[in-house]
Design a protein around this nucleic acid. Structure first.
Length: 143
RNA sequence: GCUGCAAGCCGGCUUAUCGUCCCGAUCCCGAUAUUUAUCGGGAUCGGGAAGGAAAGUCCGGGCAACACAGAGCAUCGUACUUCCUAACAGGAAGGUGUCACGCUUAAGGGCGUGAUAACAGACAGUGCCACAGAAAACAAACUACCUUAACCGAUCGUGCAUCGGACAAGGAAAAGGUGAAAAGGUGGAGUAAGAGCCCACCGCCUUGAUGGUGACAUCAGGGGCAUGGUAAACCUUACGAGUUGAAAGGCCAAAUAGGUCGCACUCACGAAAGUGAUUAGCUGCUCGCUAAUAGCGCAAGCUGGUGUGAUUGGGUAGGCUGCUUGAACCUUACGGUGACGCAAGGUCUAGAUAAAUGAUAAGCACUUCUUCCGAGUAAUCGGCAGCAGAACAGAACCCGGCUUACAGGCUUGCAUUUUUU
RNA sequence: GGUUCCGUGGCCGAGUGGCUAGGCUGAGCUCUGCAAAAGCUCCUACAGCGGUUCGAAUCCGCUCGGAACCU
């Protein structure tokens, strides 16, 4: 029981009793990997986000995400914090949608010029995650 | 009661579900070595988690590394005085100037209240002061004024006459106009006309006395106007400043390349290209691919090469530390006009690192407007309900200031106005 | 996190305290049968606020915006 949990910490088989956590290990924080992701990763736009994704360099780790808001677009740190918090919350609640087996790293870049309400962000994040699900797997298969 | 100004303070709260970071306790799992310990991960419980400006980075310090005999020059900064302070371009108290208002004087001026000032020096030197104006700085003299001598014209009173014009020599700087600024001001005396030439008051310069820690003030004497503005122009004087910033500094330390030591191999054919073989590596094995098979010596062996194992220095990726107990905060007493100091008691109050407290729902409190009800003569106030709103803004090593942004609320003081007495 | 610099018409860009040059673009006119070229005229400016000065694009302070560098 415990062993299986350890092998796949993000086990979301039936969805019953799943804890919607968002720990530090699920965030992309290695500078080297970030560089690699932005140089080699494939991307798509889905207003108000741009998503860059890539197979995980270390497949034993869970999915890792990077959320970023340009300081060019939003000059005040308070606004950037608010947007990042809303994106983080939307991902935390809906990340069980992401079910592809080899884990990936991806970045969510906020590209809109104004601050959108939480409900809209939540819906868009759901669409983005299902899209990631669909065409991340074939890319891995071809390679 | 309302409104405004100034100073000081505050800068939403509660509950539910889910979730983030840090600390502590208990438990579980994995790795390493010796019962137990270290490291990593997780669960449960408990506790804590952004500001008055966290901002701008405009000043000043702490802390850290490096540099450093002493003195001078250069560069940069500061600039009324005294004090506060770890320090400051900050603050407190005072001085002086300017402006406004009021009172007063015949006027010049004096006194009071408030605001405000980058408020050292322009008789150390250099530069600049456009246009206008005669002249913009050791004064000079355009118009106008006055005197003297001679000339010309007009008049009638026929004179050393009066009026006008032009020229020359001289006097003087009062009047005019220009300008941001024109060479002390006002009044008098004086004169051919005038002038600090002289007089009174004021201003200025200077000497002395008294008071004050000092800036400076007051009084007395002398000078006789000599001293335009500009130092946020160069500059002078006095004082201060070593450089770089936590991405500083310290510790640990993969991979790759390097050093040292050990072990294995370093052959055959061919003119050469190449072929085979051996060794080593990649692979579970074969195939295949890659690398080496060189020099000296009779030989042992030595040097070199390839592969591999161990070890080692520097230290990259990365991690840990620096990191939050501090010129700390609160209360009270005492000293000081005050900034502030000091004593006693109490408190522990963020520590993230692609960077944290947030999402959803409900309620309370607050503000504006509207309807209704109540109180009051009225200005206005209170209550129920509804709609809308709710600022500026996010720690990045830490403090002290300054500046800038800010919905709304509270306290104190002052002022205007309204109502009642 | 820190350091340095810049901001002048629609665009480029000169201007060391005294009327803000010049070029490109745009509009109009002249010339031409029409156009091009040329010539003439016009439009639109010192990032904002405050101070020093008689006078500020220039000197000083604050604010806003932009760029580069350190890593």
């Amino acid at each position: 029981m415990k062993n299986s949990e350890r092998e796949s910490p993000l086990s979301f088989g039936d969805g019953q009793g799943v804890r919607h956590t968002f720990k530090k290990s699920e965030r992309l924080s290695k500078e080297k990997w970030i560089q690699e992701l932005f140089e080699k990763g494939s991307s798509f736009y889905l207003y108000p986000f741009k998503v860059i994704h890539q197979p995980h360099p270390d497949p034993t780790l869970p999915h890792q995400v990077l959320i970023t808001v340009s300081s060019r677009q939003f000059k005040k740190a308070v606004d950037r914090n608010l947007i990042k918090r809303r994106i983080r919350e939307a991902y935390r609640i809906q990340k069980h949608v992401l079910t592809i087996k080899p884990t990936i790293v991806f970045a969510i870049i906020y590209t809109a010029k104004e601050i959108l309400p939480f409900a809209e962000m939540k819906a868009k994040i759901l669409i983005a995650l299902t899209k990631l699900n669909n065409f991340s797997a074939p890319v891995r298969g071809e390679a």
